[in-house]
Amino acid sequence: MTGTGVGPKLIEINGVEAGYDKSVVLHDVNFHVHEDQFTGIVGPSGAGKTTLLRLLLGTVKPYSGTVTNMQGLRTAYVPQLETVNWNFPLTVSECVLMSRPTKRKLPWSTQPERDEVTAVLERLGIAQLADRHIRDLSGGQQQRMFLARALLRQPQLLLLDEPTSGVDVSTRHDILHLLADLHEDGVAIVLTTHDLNGMAAHLPHIVCINHRVIAEGTPKQVITPPVLEQTFGARMEVLEHLGMRVVVDEQPEHKGSVSN
Protein backbone atom coordinates (compact mmCIF):
# COMPACT_ATOMS: atom_id res chain seq x y z
CA MET A 1 0.00 0.00 0.00
CA THR A 2 1.42 3.41 -0.94
CA GLY A 3 0.28 6.49 0.89
CA THR A 4 3.32 8.06 2.47
CA GLY A 5 2.78 11.25 0.51
CA VAL A 6 4.78 12.05 -2.59
CA GLY A 7 2.06 13.47 -4.87
CA PRO A 8 1.03 17.12 -5.17
CA LYS A 9 0.28 18.92 -1.91
CA LEU A 10 -3.37 19.36 -0.92
CA ILE A 11 -2.74 21.21 2.37
CA GLU A 12 0.42 22.74 3.85
CA ILE A 13 0.70 23.58 7.53
CA ASN A 14 3.84 25.59 8.24
CA GLY A 15 5.10 26.75 11.64
CA VAL A 16 1.61 26.74 13.16
CA GLU A 17 0.70 27.48 16.75
CA ALA A 18 -2.98 26.81 17.50
CA GLY A 19 -5.46 26.12 20.28
CA TYR A 20 -8.68 27.34 21.89
CA ASP A 21 -9.53 30.39 23.98
CA LYS A 22 -5.94 31.66 23.79
CA SER A 23 -4.46 28.48 25.33
CA VAL A 24 -1.96 26.84 22.98
CA VAL A 25 -2.56 23.16 22.16
CA LEU A 26 -0.17 22.77 19.24
CA HIS A 27 3.30 24.30 18.93
CA ASP A 28 5.37 24.80 15.80
CA VAL A 29 3.53 22.25 13.65
CA ASN A 30 4.77 21.56 10.15
CA PHE A 31 2.63 19.02 8.31
CA HIS A 32 1.85 18.50 4.64
CA VAL A 33 -0.98 16.43 3.15
CA HIS A 34 -0.29 15.04 -0.30
CA GLU A 35 -2.69 13.77 -2.93
CA ASP A 36 -1.82 10.10 -2.36
CA GLN A 37 -1.50 10.24 1.41
CA PHE A 38 -3.02 7.81 3.92
CA THR A 39 -2.00 9.02 7.35
CA GLY A 40 -2.86 8.28 10.96
CA ILE A 41 -2.35 10.98 13.57
CA VAL A 42 -1.40 9.24 16.79
CA GLY A 43 -1.05 10.58 20.30
CA PRO A 44 -2.42 10.44 23.83
CA SER A 45 -5.70 12.11 24.86
CA GLY A 46 -5.35 15.88 24.87
CA ALA A 47 -2.23 15.81 22.67
CA GLY A 48 -3.88 17.91 19.94
CA LYS A 49 -4.95 15.21 17.44
CA THR A 50 -8.40 16.66 16.90
CA THR A 51 -6.98 20.20 16.88
CA LEU A 52 -4.64 19.20 14.04
CA LEU A 53 -7.61 17.70 12.19
CA ARG A 54 -9.56 20.92 12.74
CA LEU A 55 -6.64 22.94 11.39
CA LEU A 56 -6.84 20.83 8.22
CA LEU A 57 -10.60 21.39 8.11
CA GLY A 58 -10.21 25.12 8.64
CA THR A 59 -12.48 25.22 11.71
CA VAL A 60 -9.55 26.13 13.97
CA LYS A 61 -7.54 29.15 12.88
CA PRO A 62 -3.81 29.28 13.71
CA TYR A 63 -2.53 31.87 16.19
CA SER A 64 0.63 32.02 14.09
CA GLY A 65 2.04 30.27 11.04
CA THR A 66 0.12 29.40 7.88
CA VAL A 67 -2.33 26.79 6.64
CA THR A 68 -2.55 26.76 2.85
CA ASN A 69 -5.13 24.73 0.92
CA MET A 70 -4.88 23.77 -2.71
CA GLN A 71 -7.32 25.90 -4.66
CA GLY A 72 -10.74 24.26 -5.06
CA LEU A 73 -9.87 21.42 -2.66
CA ARG A 74 -12.89 19.23 -1.86
CA THR A 75 -12.67 18.01 1.72
CA ALA A 76 -15.10 15.78 3.59
CA TYR A 77 -15.17 15.10 7.31
CA VAL A 78 -16.31 12.09 9.32
CA PRO A 79 -16.79 13.06 12.99
CA GLN A 80 -16.73 10.81 16.03
CA LEU A 81 -19.96 8.87 16.35
CA GLU A 82 -20.85 10.34 19.71
CA THR A 83 -20.96 13.91 18.41
CA VAL A 84 -24.51 13.62 17.08
CA ASN A 85 -27.90 12.82 18.58
CA TRP A 86 -28.74 9.36 17.18
CA ASN A 87 -32.37 9.86 18.21
CA PHE A 88 -32.71 12.63 15.63
CA PRO A 89 -35.64 11.78 13.30
CA LEU A 90 -33.69 10.76 10.21
CA THR A 91 -33.40 7.74 7.96
CA VAL A 92 -30.05 6.61 6.59
CA SER A 93 -30.76 7.95 3.10
CA GLU A 94 -31.96 11.32 4.46
CA CYS A 95 -28.77 11.61 6.51
CA VAL A 96 -26.53 10.84 3.54
CA LEU A 97 -28.41 13.15 1.18
CA MET A 98 -28.06 16.22 3.40
CA SER A 99 -24.38 16.64 2.53
CA ARG A 100 -24.88 16.71 -1.22
CA PRO A 101 -23.88 20.11 -2.57
CA THR A 102 -26.81 21.67 -4.38
CA LYS A 103 -28.10 25.00 -5.56
CA ARG A 104 -31.60 23.55 -5.65
CA LYS A 105 -34.10 25.53 -3.58
CA LEU A 106 -36.85 22.92 -3.23
CA PRO A 107 -36.90 20.76 -0.08
CA TRP A 108 -37.54 17.39 -1.71
CA SER A 109 -34.88 15.34 -3.48
CA THR A 110 -34.73 14.58 -7.20
CA GLN A 111 -34.50 11.10 -8.73
CA PRO A 112 -30.84 11.60 -9.79
CA GLU A 113 -30.02 12.63 -6.20
CA ARG A 114 -31.75 9.53 -4.83
CA ASP A 115 -29.84 7.40 -7.36
CA GLU A 116 -26.56 8.92 -6.18
CA VAL A 117 -27.42 8.11 -2.57
CA THR A 118 -28.32 4.52 -3.51
CA ALA A 119 -25.04 4.13 -5.41
CA VAL A 120 -22.89 5.34 -2.52
CA LEU A 121 -24.81 3.20 -0.01
CA GLU A 122 -24.30 0.18 -2.29
CA ARG A 123 -20.59 0.94 -2.49
CA LEU A 124 -20.43 0.83 1.30
CA GLY A 125 -22.61 -2.27 1.55
CA ILE A 126 -25.51 -0.67 3.43
CA ALA A 127 -28.05 -0.06 0.62
CA GLN A 128 -30.51 -2.38 2.35
CA LEU A 129 -30.54 -0.02 5.36
CA ALA A 130 -31.52 3.11 3.37
CA ASP A 131 -34.95 3.50 4.96
CA ARG A 132 -33.95 2.48 8.46
CA HIS A 133 -33.83 5.01 11.30
CA ILE A 134 -30.24 6.00 12.15
CA ARG A 135 -30.67 4.87 15.77
CA ASP A 136 -31.32 1.31 14.61
CA LEU A 137 -27.81 0.86 13.14
CA SER A 138 -24.84 -0.84 14.75
CA GLY A 139 -21.68 1.21 15.43
CA GLY A 140 -20.05 -0.09 12.26
CA GLN A 141 -23.13 0.69 10.16
CA GLN A 142 -23.29 4.21 11.62
CA GLN A 143 -19.65 4.71 10.67
CA ARG A 144 -20.37 3.49 7.13
CA MET A 145 -23.33 5.87 6.89
CA PHE A 146 -21.09 8.79 7.88
CA LEU A 147 -18.56 7.63 5.29
CA ALA A 148 -21.33 7.50 2.68
CA ARG A 149 -22.36 11.04 3.60
CA ALA A 150 -18.75 12.16 3.19
CA LEU A 151 -18.27 10.32 -0.12
CA LEU A 152 -21.37 11.94 -1.65
CA ARG A 153 -19.30 15.13 -1.72
CA GLN A 154 -16.75 13.32 -3.94
CA PRO A 155 -13.85 14.50 -1.78
CA GLN A 156 -10.19 14.62 -2.73
CA LEU A 157 -9.32 14.57 0.97
CA LEU A 158 -11.19 12.61 3.63
CA LEU A 159 -10.62 13.50 7.30
CA LEU A 160 -11.83 11.14 10.03
CA ASP A 161 -11.82 11.67 13.79
CA GLU A 162 -11.26 8.37 15.66
CA PRO A 163 -13.14 6.24 13.10
CA THR A 164 -12.59 3.02 15.06
CA SER A 165 -13.40 4.37 18.50
CA GLY A 166 -15.98 2.19 20.24
CA VAL A 167 -16.34 -0.43 17.48
CA ASP A 168 -15.54 -4.14 17.75
CA VAL A 169 -12.52 -5.84 16.18
CA SER A 170 -14.39 -7.14 13.15
CA THR A 171 -15.87 -3.69 12.40
CA ARG A 172 -12.44 -2.12 12.85
CA HIS A 173 -11.07 -4.47 10.17
CA ASP A 174 -13.99 -3.62 7.87
CA ILE A 175 -13.42 0.11 8.28
CA LEU A 176 -9.70 -0.24 7.72
CA HIS A 177 -10.25 -2.20 4.50
CA LEU A 178 -12.91 0.25 3.36
CA LEU A 179 -10.55 3.17 3.87
CA ALA A 180 -7.78 1.30 2.06
CA ASP A 181 -10.14 0.78 -0.90
CA LEU A 182 -11.07 4.47 -0.93
CA HIS A 183 -7.39 5.35 -0.87
CA GLU A 184 -6.79 3.00 -3.80
CA ASP A 185 -9.55 4.90 -5.61
CA GLY A 186 -7.52 8.11 -5.22
CA VAL A 187 -8.90 9.70 -2.05
CA ALA A 188 -6.28 11.11 0.32
CA ILE A 189 -7.06 10.11 3.92
CA VAL A 190 -6.01 11.57 7.25
CA LEU A 191 -7.44 10.12 10.45
CA THR A 192 -6.83 10.40 14.16
CA THR A 193 -6.51 7.33 16.32
CA HIS A 194 -5.29 6.32 19.73
CA ASP A 195 -5.30 2.65 18.66
CA LEU A 196 -1.64 1.83 17.93
CA ASN A 197 -1.91 -1.90 17.22
CA GLY A 198 -5.39 -2.12 15.73
CA MET A 199 -5.20 0.91 13.46
CA ALA A 200 -1.98 2.91 13.28
CA ALA A 201 0.34 -0.05 12.65
CA HIS A 202 -1.72 -0.96 9.56
CA LEU A 203 -1.42 2.49 7.95
CA PRO A 204 1.30 3.43 5.48
CA HIS A 205 2.10 6.74 7.20
CA ILE A 206 1.91 7.86 10.83
CA VAL A 207 2.37 11.19 12.57
CA CYS A 208 3.04 11.04 16.31
CA ILE A 209 2.05 14.19 18.19
CA ASN A 210 2.05 15.43 21.70
CA HIS A 211 1.39 19.17 21.42
CA ARG A 212 4.01 19.17 18.66
CA VAL A 213 5.00 16.72 15.95
CA ILE A 214 7.30 14.15 17.57
CA ALA A 215 7.92 12.04 14.45
CA GLU A 216 6.39 11.08 11.14
CA GLY A 217 7.02 8.31 8.67
CA THR A 218 6.16 4.66 8.03
CA PRO A 219 5.19 2.46 11.03
CA LYS A 220 8.67 0.92 10.85
CA GLN A 221 10.27 4.38 11.15
CA VAL A 222 7.92 5.76 13.78
CA ILE A 223 6.75 2.89 15.99
CA THR A 224 9.93 2.69 18.04
CA PRO A 225 10.38 2.77 21.83
CA PRO A 226 12.06 6.22 21.93
CA VAL A 227 9.34 7.86 19.75
CA LEU A 228 6.54 6.18 21.70
CA GLU A 229 8.03 7.25 25.01
CA GLN A 230 8.28 10.83 23.80
CA THR A 231 4.72 10.70 22.47
CA PHE A 232 2.91 8.88 25.26
CA GLY A 233 5.24 9.60 28.19
CA ALA A 234 5.50 5.89 29.01
CA ARG A 235 7.99 3.20 28.15
CA MET A 236 6.72 0.66 25.63
CA GLU A 237 8.21 -2.33 23.91
CA VAL A 238 7.88 -2.93 20.18
CA LEU A 239 7.70 -6.46 18.81
CA GLU A 240 7.61 -7.76 15.24
CA HIS A 241 4.73 -10.05 14.32
CA LEU A 242 4.16 -11.18 10.71
CA GLY A 243 6.07 -8.12 9.51
CA MET A 244 3.92 -5.78 11.59
CA ARG A 245 4.89 -3.68 14.56
CA VAL A 246 3.12 -4.61 17.80
CA VAL A 247 3.36 -2.33 20.83
CA VAL A 248 3.26 -3.72 24.36
CA ASP A 249 3.40 -1.82 27.63
CA GLU A 250 6.66 -2.25 29.44
CA GLN A 251 5.92 -3.08 33.05
CA PRO A 252 8.71 -3.74 35.55
CA GLU A 253 7.15 -6.84 37.14
CA HIS A 254 4.77 -8.24 34.54
CA LYS A 255 5.81 -7.71 30.95
CA GLY A 256 3.63 -8.54 27.99
CA SER A 257 0.50 -6.41 28.33
CA VAL A 258 -0.54 -5.34 24.83
CA SER A 259 -0.98 -1.58 24.48
CA ASN A 260 -3.74 0.30 22.79
Partner: peptide, 20 residues
Protein backbone atom coordinates in the same frame (compact mmCIF):
# COMPACT_ATOMS: atom_id res chain seq x y z
CA UNK B 1 -38.76 25.87 2.38
CA UNK B 2 -35.81 27.55 0.66
CA UNK B 3 -33.13 26.42 3.12
CA UNK B 4 -34.63 23.05 4.09
CA UNK B 5 -31.60 20.84 3.49
CA UNK B 6 -29.05 23.28 4.90
CA UNK B 7 -31.23 23.89 7.96
CA UNK B 8 -31.63 20.15 8.51
CA UNK B 9 -27.87 19.59 8.18
CA UNK B 10 -27.06 22.48 10.55
CA UNK B 11 -29.60 21.18 13.05
CA UNK B 12 -28.42 17.55 13.01
CA UNK B 13 -24.67 17.99 12.70
CA UNK B 14 -23.51 21.64 12.74
CA UNK B 15 -19.78 20.80 12.78
CA UNK B 16 -19.90 18.73 9.61
CA UNK B 17 -22.41 21.09 7.99
CA UNK B 18 -19.96 23.93 8.59
CA UNK B 19 -17.11 22.18 6.77
CA UNK B 20 -19.47 21.02 4.02
Amino acid sequence: FLRYRALLFATFDPDVADVS
